[in-house]
Simulated assay, not measured.
Amino acid sequence: MGANSRLTIAVHALTWMEVHRRQGNEISTSEQIAGSVNTNPVVIRRLLGELQKAGLVESRRGAGAGWTLSRELESITLLDVYRAVEPGVLFAMHRSTPNLECPVGVGIQPAMQEIYDHIEETLRAELARTTLVEVMREVLSGAG
């Protein structure tokens, strides 16, 4: 199974939008963002749609169409972005009920759920500690 890059792409897009804004550009197009991410604009539009539902970006239609940030990067955490693009749980149980007559089958779900709950709680706490402005500063300090 491959790793999921949706959080990384979403953070990339939002950070790029702020850098683009600071360069004097009021709006960003999905084509421009896709050029930075090096992906198809359709992928970016889908992701921006999810970010819009979460209140992180706004879209403009008509002349001058494009996207803007709804909030300052200082007020957006990695957890906000994660929740917008990864609404489900990190780990899931069996799709069907395991054999409850088996000593492993009867106890695997409760045992794993406790572990998964702890991992999710730790992940969310770590993501909540970092704002996108911190990510942007780190990105720009490495960009030379």
Rank of each mutant, 00 (worst) to 15 (best):
E101M: 10
E86P: 01
P110E: 06
T97Q: 14
S5M: 10
T68Q: 11
L132T: 11
M93E: 13
I33T: 15
A65G: 13
A125T: 09
M1Q: 06
R95I: 12
E126Q: 13
A34R: 06
V43G: 06
L47C: 07
R21T: 04
M112I: 14
R71Y: 04
R83F: 05
W67E: 03
V104P: 01
G55R: 01
V106T: 05
S36M: 12
A10I: 11
R60M: 11
V37E: 10
M93V: 08
G55C: 03
L79N: 12
S59G: 11
Y116S: 14
I108M: 12
P87V: 11
H94P: 09
P110H: 05
R71E: 09
Q23P: 02
T15E: 01
H118Y: 15
R124F: 12
L100K: 10
N38Q: 14
H118L: 15
I115G: 04
S75R: 10
E134R: 12
R83Q: 15
L78K: 05
L100M: 14
R6P: 01
T97V: 15
S96P: 00
A34E: 11
P87K: 10
A143C: 04
L79S: 08
L51K: 01
G105I: 06
D80G: 11
M112W: 11
H20W: 07
L47Y: 03
G64T: 04
L140H: 00
E121P: 00
N25K: 06
H20V: 00
S5W: 06
E138D: 06
I44H: 04
Q113M: 11
P87M: 09
E121Q: 15
G144D: 09
T122P: 00
I76Y: 07
I9Y: 09
A63W: 04
V81A: 10
